[in-house]
Simulated scan of single mutants.
Amino acid sequence: MLFKRRSDASQADAADADIEPRIALAENEGIHEAILKGNWTTRRVAVVDATLRKIEKNNNIKNLRVDLSGVGRIDTAGAWLIERLLTAMRARGLQPEVTGASNAANILLTAVHDATTREGESAPERRDNILIRALGAIGEAVYGILEDLIAALYILGATIRGAQMKIGRGHSVNVAAIVTQIDRMGVGAVPVIVLMSTIVGAIVAQQGAFQLRFFGAEIFVVDLVGILVLREMGVLLTAIMIAGRSGSAITAEIGSMKMREEVDALTVIGLNPVGVLVFPRLVALVIVLPCLTIIANFAALAGAIAIAYYYSNIAPAAFIDRLRAAIDLSTFLAGLIKAPFMALVIGIIGSVEGLKVGGSAESLGLHVTASVVKSIFIVILLDGFFAIFYAQIGF
């Protein structure tokens, strides 16, 4: 009996599915009547879609009555087609009438009508004018700067406090990690620093000699190169190169560890992420950047000596004698004092951006870019502050 009942039910469903939807349009005393029959379900309504569209475009219809008394089963798809017909009539100023609808059809037609009405009445997203958007962007940027400043001060404070490799368990310094970072950030950067500084020193000497030649004062190119390189350009160009080379590496390394949840794993096993990851890199940068600045200064002066000899016939001995008269110890120290501060800025910004990396490669790329841009900007800004400070104290 159980199998027989299932078979009867399946036969009933199959017979029910064979009743295709139909629509007939008739006119009675100036009123057009659309008579719907069959099952208006998702699998069947496609056969009457074209007929419904013709009725929607029929401009001869002045009044419409939709008769649903012959409709058997109906679902959302069928109700939506009927609502589309009614909406098209209402758009032409007509008041269509629905008759003979079952309770299920009434519920579906009401729900579809309400949904369509809400969608049509939903107001477009209001956009503020350009001034409001600009002020909003400035406000967001200020809050972002505040958050970065708090994170930077936290890292700086934790670094000054000490290495603290283990959370709450005293201090220790991982000398091997510091030496490794010095090798990667310092020794590996020497070739590119020497090449860049030599070229820049040669360019400054050539352009300075070319301009001073009109006044018969080519010898003063030594003063120009010596003061400019030792006070400003040597340390500034070195810091910019380190920001692009090592600052981005710090962000990428810490950011990739953050993506793989290795930073959280350090905390779980009782290690301080700042002491393990940030402290060795900051110490290495503070040691490396002054040393690279000295190398960059000598390389730039060497390039200037070569150009002055071949371009202006200034012998190297004369160049060095004039350089001794033009500069003193304060000229050399003025640039060297800036190096540790610039190193701290580069390391802290790289670490902050690395710890802000999310779980995607796109986030890593964005924060690496932000690290380089912010580091270079702050380094140049810091150099300007030092220049103003030196001018005020007469240094």
Rank of each mutant, 00 (worst) to 15 (best):
65 R>D: 14
70 G>F: 02
48 V>C: 06
57 K>S: 15
37 K>I: 04
39 N>I: 00
61 I>E: 08
65 R>P: 06
38 G>H: 03
70 G>V: 07
61 I>A: 10
57 K>V: 02
68 L>K: 02
35 I>T: 11
65 R>Y: 01
49 D>H: 12
50 A>C: 14
46 A>I: 07
77 A>K: 02
48 V>A: 12
24 A>R: 14
27 E>I: 14
33 E>R: 09
52 L>A: 11
62 K>D: 13
27 E>W: 01
78 G>L: 00
29 E>M: 12
52 L>D: 10
50 A>K: 08
23 I>E: 03
51 T>P: 15
34 A>K: 04
57 K>F: 11
77 A>Y: 06
29 E>A: 15
25 L>K: 05
29 E>R: 14
47 V>A: 10
23 I>A: 08
39 N>T: 10
66 V>G: 04
55 I>G: 01
56 E>G: 07
38 G>C: 10
38 G>Q: 03
54 K>W: 09
64 L>S: 05
28 N>K: 12
30 G>D: 14
46 A>W: 10
64 L>C: 06
72 G>N: 04
24 A>L: 12
68 L>M: 15
69 S>Y: 05
26 A>Q: 12
70 G>M: 01
52 L>K: 07
28 N>Q: 15
30 G>T: 13
38 G>M: 04
37 K>P: 07
47 V>R: 07
59 N>E: 07
41 T>W: 04
30 G>F: 14
59 N>G: 10
32 H>E: 15
63 N>G: 06
55 I>H: 04
69 S>I: 02
76 T>W: 04
63 N>K: 08
24 A>C: 05
21 P>Y: 01
40 W>D: 02
32 H>K: 08
75 D>H: 01
52 L>P: 11
36 L>S: 02
58 N>V: 07
27 E>G: 14
78 G>V: 00
24 A>Q: 13
31 I>R: 06
31 I>D: 11
19 I>W: 08
49 D>I: 10
35 I>D: 11
76 T>K: 12
72 G>D: 09
42 T>F: 03
45 V>W: 05
57 K>D: 14
66 V>S: 00
